[in-house]
Design a protein around this nucleic acid. Structure first.
Lengths: 403, 403
DNA sequence: GATGTTTGTTGACAAGTATGACAAACCTCG
DNA sequence: CGAGGTTTGTCATACTTGTCAACAAACATC
């Protein structure tokens, strides 16, 4: 149910609006905020003042720009005071980072790990020591200034939205893991921990800071070992009933295809996933990123089998994208991970296939672009997840955090 | 950009909230509204009073219910004062109806038409005379009470959201038709005209008054000649960038399949559409609804070929539904049109296939149900489209309508 | 240095809801 | 039948928030 609006909600909404504008536009003057929001000078003064008092934005003295009139003070999001702890859990690597409210990564650490240490307890322990290393990087005098407002965790699996439980992470062998609880006891602090699916977080980051900026309806298609994705409709992430939305890797595209690890047949990822691509090129299906590089090299030097594999990849990619476009009507499709890396090599066949398959192609002008943030997308996305409540209710969260 | 909130917006939002509550809960007392919205008695009194003054709700004297305490006046949506004109354009039929704010159909007329009269000008003329008949049905003394607040038009084709232009309606042979403009000049009145896709409108109606009530994340799958659909995420219709979202009939499910009328290959509707079903059963693919009845009869009396056709239909239906469920994570899938009619006959094989194909089936509990509104769904949906602005800003629209 | 322009600041005003006191309308109990 | 308890509508007042208009400050140009 949409809850009733009372007077203080108004303040909350406007506070969030100003903060959002500052994040989108970067540095901007108070008078620009007046123009952008439609609020009056006095209202903006009060809102910016409150955000400054909360430590979320900083106001620099006015800078003359050669135009007549009194110059307006420049406001920008504080890039040090408030940070989020972003934790990434992959199969063969874990990472941790502090990310500022403007999306910049303050510092980060990563650690490879053997595939034998992916159990929950081991993972949690490894993450804890990684976070210790992360904190040690920060000089003590800066430490006082930082305030860790929340923690976002990326997991390659299905995450239930309401309670953050990792319902299933096939590549890690996890089932029904209350990751947030485990991490909370180890990390010690009382900061709220949010868990999200890696592809969803990548989509979130690309939507706000990457290739999806300016797009209200975006599809993010990320190829790794499997294929994941995230949807943004009307500017908001589509999470679904339980938070499982975006499992586009399991769109059925080929009823005569291979059995997927999910148990179904002919899922999209069995056709466009990394192993399918490598296998078609005659390379080791489990060769990973280096094998993909090898494939690209071979194709560039005229290897027909590699070229054919890429053409086939483009075809299957186009089939899935066309379907998603028909269902969602996005203005932008962002390709991430594996697909971003091989996109230059399959640009032409992909566009050709898309033009052929796209429903009423002539009417559509969907941009299919590569991701802009690369591997940092997940980091930034995890932080965005942690910043979520703050962006929604700046004053409420900050005053609660102090207490 | 989310616009800034000023004090009057607060009123608007609460007014809309109360009206929405009354529509959802039907008749309900003022004290129930207090409990539901969280607003105070005095606020509710003011809001209900304003809605009553606008002619949107009526307040009945309190009814004693045997409980202690002063009884609360009963409020309900006025089912006569404000109506929407719902116009439905199908290939071989057109319809018009007045629909009240509570979703009840005041009166309606329908007219079959030959397939030779589907051109835009002819359709507009036929609709105009149909609306005349519709108005003639209403006794003059009631006419004074009615106020037609808007007009919603259902079209079997792609409708661009921003301007209501019918970009393409293949079955009618329409391309880039400014239907709203043409209808406005013929209908005469100054009422705003909204155009929408038939499946999207069916989804809207089922979501608000039909099988999707209580569901925040719904997929509506409607089978007619083609296959259309509508999506509801977080309680709101997903329209997409241009308004084309929901073209689920053109999900690619079979790369070895038939060529679709959209130009692509192996679209879902080439496998689950009416003609595919009939063809598999050895019936006339263009036999229409009566042929489907024939098929169901044959299957019920043991005709193996008819039974096989239904099994095959269930399989392909499950394939598409599974994909959509994986991408969207709905809590409810509503089957409409053809699929609603044949659902009883393919319940078992459908559920079996779904259990087999659904990603991580054990974790999911998606309800797959038949539509509840039948052919009235589109009527009600068209009215809902027309009521949209009113539901968003009751006072603003009503005062503008009077002026 | 005078003038014009843009912008921050300030205090009075308007819109909307909350609060609390009181009255009205119902029940139950004696 | 009347007293007491409970729930609810009504009313006057207070609080929050943004607007408006007047004024001052900071810039450019002439």
């Amino acid at each position: 149910m949409t809850s009733a609006a009372r007077t203080p909600q108004l303040r909350r909404s406007n506070l969030a609006l100003v903060l959002d504008q500052l994040r989108r536009r970067g540095t901007c003057s108070r008078s620009q905020l007046v123009a952008a929001t439609g609020l009056t000078r006095s209202a903006i003064a009060g809102l910016v003042g409150e955000l400054e008092a909360l430590g979320l934005v900083v106001e620099a003295p006015s800078v003359s720009e050669g135009r007549p009139g009194r110059p307006s003070p420049v406001v920008r999001v504080d890039d040090r005071c408030v940070v989020a702890l972003a934790i990434e859990i992959f199969v063969d690597e874990i990472g941790a980072a502090f990310v500022a409210l403007d999306g910049s990564i303050v510092n980060s650490v990563r650690a490879a790990r053997p595939r034998t240490r992916v159990a929950v307890a081991e993972t949690v322990a490894d993450v804890a020591s990684l976070v210790d290393r992360l904190e040690a990087q920060i000089p003590p005098h800066q430490h006082a200034g930082h305030q860790v407002i929340g923690c976002g965790v990326s997991v390659p699996g299905l995450v239930r939205d309401v309670d953050g439980v990792v319902v299933a992470a096939p590549n890690l062998g996890w089932i029904d893991v209350s990751l947030a609880e485990s991490l909370a006891s180890v990390l010690g602090r009382g900061i709220p921990i949010h868990v999200g699916n890696d592809a969803d977080l990548g989509a979130l980051a690309e939507s706000r800071f990457g290739a999806g900026v300016g797009s209200d309806h975006m599809i993010f298609v990320s190829g790794e070992v499997g294929v994941g994705g995230g949807l943004v409709a009307a500017g908001r992430p589509v999470v679904g009933h339980l938070g499982f939305a975006g499992e586009i890797g399991h769109l059925p595209v080929n009823p005569e295809g291979r059995r997927c690890r999910c148990g179904s047949i002919g899922c999209w990822e069995t056709e466009v996933g990394e192993s399918a691509l490598l296998e078609r090129a005659g390379l080791d299906p489990d060769g990973g990123r280096s094998a993909v590089e090898e494939l690209l090299d071979r194709a560039a030097t005229g290897d027909q089998r590699a070229a054919n594999a890429l053409t086939s990849e483009a075809r299957w990619l186009a089939i899935g994208i066309a379907g998603l476009v028909n269902v969602f009507d996005p203005d932008t499709v962002v390709l991430g991970g594996l697909f971003a890396r091989i996109l230059p090599a399959l640009r032409e066949p992909l566009d050709a296939e898309l033009a052929d398959r796209r429903y009423l192609a002539a009417r559509r002008d969907v941009a299919v672009v590569g991701a802009a943030l690369g591997p940092q997308a997940v980091t930034v996305g995890a932080a965005e997840l942690a910043f979520g409540p703050l962006l929604d209710d700046p004053a409420g969260v900050m005053s609660a955090a102090v207490a």
